[in-house]
Structures are given as C-alpha cells and as structure tokens.
Design a protein around this nucleic acid. Structure first.
Lengths: 336, 336
DNA sequence: ACGCTTTGTTGGACCGTTCCAATTTTCAAG
DNA sequence: CTTGAAAATTGGAACGGTCCAACAAAGCGT
C-alpha cells in the first residue's frame, strides 16, 4: 500500500496520455474524447488518485474555501448558525474550514492567521466579540462578515445581527404586560451584544416609569453565568418577580437557580431568555425567549460574503433582522 | 490595499536579500544574521506579507493539519470532545480543519474527500456512524481515529470509546437497586453504539431475571427521538416506572415526554441517560446519567493519531474507557 | 485529393514555497 | 597578510497542479 501518493503524472503515464489531458479530464471538460476520458478514469481509480488541493489552489490562485471562526462552540446556537452557513456555502460550490475561538485573544488571532494563510476567500465570524485578527483579514483584502454583532463603521466588513435593543424591549414589554413590575436583568458580560440587550432593558424600564426597579446582576453568556446572576438576583432584598436573562444558555442556568432556591417557574418567578436556541423549545425546558432566525442568519451571512467576493469594492452592509417573541412555559402572569 | 498579495519575492526585493533567506528568516532560523533578520521583518510588516499555506504545504509535502469530521454538531457532547481534540492538536503544533457530517452519506463522504485533498495528515471522526469515506482515507494511508465507536477489525484505524455494554448494565443495576423492575429502554437507532447500549440493557435485565420486562421503544440520538420513544413507553399498557434512554440529548426529550403526560420525575418515573453532557448537570435539568470522559477522549484520540503518524505501521489500537454513574435528580426509589 | 474548420492533445511556463549544494563573506589563528 | 573553517547568503530545482499557445488528427464540402 503506500509510498508517495500518486500524482497527475502517474495517472497520465498509466493512461498513456499527457498530464494536461488528465487535468482536463479530472475537471470534467467536454473537450476530452470519450475514449480518453474512460482510460483516464480507470487509471485514476486503479491508482487511487486524489487531486492535491494545495497544488490546485496554488496554480489557480484561489482556494475555493471559506473560513469560519466560531467563538463559542458550546453555545448551541453556534451549531444552528453554522448549519445555515454551510448550506449556503455548499450551494455556492465552496467549502468550509472551521476553527474555534476562545477567550484567549492571541490564540483566536492565530487561528484567523491560519485561515488567511490557507488563502480562504472569505471569512465568517460567529460570535459577539470582535477578534483582533479580523482587522488584519480586512486590510489583507479578505471579505469578512460577522454574525450576531452589529458593525457599521469598518470598511469592508459586513455584519448581520438582530436588533438587540428592540428584542430586549420586547422582553420587558411582554413581562410588563403580564403584570410584572420588579423585572431584573442578568447581564451577559461586557461584549457589545450583551451591552445592547442591557440598554434595551433599561430603556424599556424607564419608558414604563420603572427606572427605580432597574436591577442588573452580573452574569455571562453561559449556563454558569446565568446561574450566578440569577442566584444573586433572588438573594437580593428586592427579589424580582421576573428575570430577563441575557441569552438562552444563561437562562437555562437561571431556571436552575430558581429551582435551587425552591421557587416555582413560572408561578413565583418568570424567566425569559434570548436567542431562540432549539433546545429551549423542549417541553422539559420550555423557555420563553426572544428568538433570532439563526439558520437564516447563517445563510444570509454567507450570501453577503459571496456578494462581496464578486464585488470587493461595495460598501459595508449591515443586515438587521427583527427578533420574535416565543412564548413557552417559563413565564406567567404576576400574582402578587 | 489590494492587488496581488505580496509574496516572499516581494519581501526579498524590499529587504535587499534573496528569497531563500527570507524563507529561512520567516521560519525563525538561527542561521540568519540579526541585521538581515531585522530588515526582513520590517519589510514583511511593511508589505503585510503572509506566507501562502498552499505553497508551503506543496513544497513541504505536509500540511501540518488534522482533519476532524463531526457527525452531529448539534449534540452538545460534540463540542466537549472537540475541545479535547483541539487542545491536544494545538499542543502538537498542528492545526485543525473541521467539517460537519450529516445524515446524507454521500455528502459526508465528499467532506472527507475534501479533507484528504487538503492532504490532512490525520483524521478524527466524532460520531457513531462509520462514514463511507473512512475506508478510502485509510487505504489512502491517512491515519484515522474514530471517537465514541469501537472498531477493532480494520487495519490502520484506531478507535476510542467507552464500554457501552458495561455502561448500560450500570444504568440497569442502579435502577434495579432503587427498586425498579419495569425498566424500559428507549433506543438510539440502529448504529453500533445504540445497539450496544441496547444489548447491555437486555443482558442486565436477563441477569436480574427480568427478561419478561424487557421493553424497547424506538427512539434516536436526538431530543425528538427521546420524546417519541418515551411517549410510546408511557402510553403502553405496561407502563414502566423507569426508563433508560439511549443518550442524554434524547433523555432531555424523555423528560419532556414525562412532563407532557402529567407525570412527575422522579416520583412517578425515573429517567437515566447516557453520555454525561455538561448541560445535563444543570440543576434545572438534573439528569442522572452514565458519563463518558468526553474531553479526555478527545485528547486521547488526538494523541493516538500522532502516535500513528509517527509509526504508521503499528497495529490498530482500541482504547476503551470505563463509564461512570452520575446520580442527579431524575431518578429516585421505586414506590409502587 | 484539397484546403479549412473543428476536435483532441501536448509540452512547457508558472503559482509561492522549501531545500540543497554552491558560493561569498567574515574572522580567528598562524 | 594568508589561510582555512565557520557563518551567512544565494540560485535553481523541486512540489503537483492549471493554463495557454501550438500542434496533430479527423471530418467535410467541393
């Protein structure tokens, strides 16, 4: 078995033709005589020939590959967005190279670096942080789009997100409509997305004349963070009757915190999350949430990328989608 | 901004040295005079030079890359395993190219094909199905390891899994110890892993003299599948008092099914899952489960891969880890 | 049998690196 | 100084493909 992998030359020799013809045949050109095509096919199969992507990409000066950086693979919404991205990328005849980010900015930057060295023709970033390497990517002329985070100032960078301020307001509106007045917020850290959700919450509270009831507890976009923030909220002397949690993953942690304190959801405490992850829809979780159209955001992002690849000069586009309230079992009317 | 990307030649010209020296310098060789090194560095920065991975990989005849195929990115355990793989791969100075599989076998095969065209030096498959392309990979001399599925016959293929039969027995043992006798099983489909868990369940039931109580309901390794199978179990005339569900994701669906039927967990029905996904540990879910050491399985898999890369001839290794019972709130004593 | 087009096929240059043998420079010792 | 070894640098041949201009073969109308 083994030895060096067969190259196009070996196939050519075995089929008794030139390597140029093999090259043509492998790409399914119609300028190859049927007889030759058959001979080449059979030689290729016999040798187990597989084209070398590095060589091809070098000669072509294009890699046919889109790079995807996923900042938090542990958040189930990442998988849902990726699905959308993949679908669109595949439909365009490209393929995807996925790398994962992390809290370590240097590591994240080096992952992007790797992607760029591979000459990816476009970059999709899924996450709320703006990784350091992205600026390099853009100045290096690599079309880039960032998902779930709004970005409008940077030339050459497209973005697609939902309107977090509006979404947060919707959450408060809904809880207010149920009769809640002591509505707390568990935050998602100091990234842009979390901050916008927080502002939306604050604005809504103020517009209802509930400024004095504004209560933010520090959390994070993780189950752990939601648990921590919500525990703090419940322990406070002004215990809220409803909690708007920064995202769904954290909201699942929030449900746990409420249960641990021996309180009932939604009878005593209402919980609303944000994102619309599929897992939240299970009846055993039944999380009310502000949903983003995750898969289609992924698709749109990839579509945006291809637009820019075909027209590199175009102005940065920011697509903002409307979030949607999804009512399930974690919220209920206030009975004081 | 733009034009063709700068190459090593451009850097050489600007720094006033030969391209060979730039090549050496970029890789941090100590045979380069400090002065030249500095000049080259500054020229590279000025031009925004970035080495071309395709060219490098071609010249080197190695890609420094490990391919990872994730069959089900939606199952949270995938992310946990990937973490482990990445850590080990990075520690070895390689990087990772991730692609996602799907039910569509042809698509999955083409993804593997892509990975091989990229000349990945090793392949990690995460999932329970054995993808068609894997055999090609192995005959094409690409070291491969498969995670969560036992495989011992195929030369050149390493595998790492837990002992699903033992694990399933542990689940039954535990439920039996709590006093349960009508223990049903919701299956995970017809893949090898699911079948082993099913056998373990059956064997354990038989060894307790409960052969007549064996009751398998068709499910799948998804929340949806668990919901469906458990609903069927609860609707049957021999309603079980405990259900062993094929995996954690399905068990979350099972919890929903029980709740939907208005029954209490664990008072009326006990539920036990399998895998040990982090999410199951949240108190709002509190799923009792048979846990696999996911992250370390990922690390071990990558380690195995590097061993084989360094010694391609070695016999196939199968590492089998012991699962561990993790007791949480979804199981309780039987009170008939 | 004659050009003339159409269809198939080919050699060689090139893509951006790394590697190696060969060359130049530097420098310490005699 | 000279000399030889060590240190620094270089040109050119790979690597495995794609592309292009040139060439060979086949068909075809007259």
């Amino acid at each position: 078995m083994a030895g060096p992998r067969p190259t196009i030359k070996d196939v050519a020799a075995l089929a008794g033709v030139s390597k140029s013809l093999v090259s043509l045949a492998m790409r399914g050109s119609d300028r190859v005589a049927p007889a030759s095509a058959a001979a080449i096919q059979s030689a290729a199969n016999q040798l187990g020939y597989r084209p070398n992507a590095a060589a091809r990409s070098l000669a072509d000066r294009r890699s046919n590959t889109i790079g995807v950086l996923v900042q938090d693979l542990h958040n189930p919404i990442s998988a849902e967005i990726i699905d959308g991205v993949q679908r669109q990328v595949r439909a365009s005849g490209y393929h995807t190279m996925l790398v994962t980010g992390s809290e370590d900015a240097a590591l994240e930057q080096s992952e992007i670096e790797k992607l760029l060295e591979f000459q990816v023709e476009g970059l999709v970033v899924i996450g709320h942080r703006m990784p350091a390497g992205v600026r390099d990517a853009i100045t290096g002329d690599c079309p880039t789009v960032i998902i779930t985070r709004a970005e409008s100032e940077i030339a050459g960078l497209d973005s697609i997100s939902n309107n977090d301020i509006v979404g947060a307001r919707m959450a408060v509106d809904y809880l207010h409509g149920l009769g809640h007045r002591a509505i707390a917020h568990v935050t998602g850290g100091d990234n842009q997305v979390a901050l916008m959700r927080k502002s939306g919450y604050e604005e809504a509270m103020i517009s209802y004349g509930l400024a004095k009831n504004i209560a933010c507890y520090e959390g994070a976009f993780t189950d752990e963070g939601g648990y921590r923030g919500t525990s703090a909220a419940l322990a406070s002397k002004n215990q809220p009757s409803a909690v708007f949690v920064a995202n769904d993953l954290a909201a699942v942690g929030a449900l746990a915190a409420v249960a641990d304190r021996g309180l009932g959801v939604p009878e005593e405490i209402s919980i609303i999350g944000y994102d619309g992850m599929a897992l939240g829809g299970l009846r055993s979780i039944g999380l009310t949430t502000i949903a983003q159209p995750l898969a289609s955001m992924g698709e749109d992002a990839a579509a945006l990328l291809f637009q820019r690849i075909n027209d590199p000069g175009r102005l940065p586009v920011h697509i903002e989608l409307e979030p949607r309230l999804v009512i399930r079992n974690s919220t209920g009317v206030y009975h004081g």
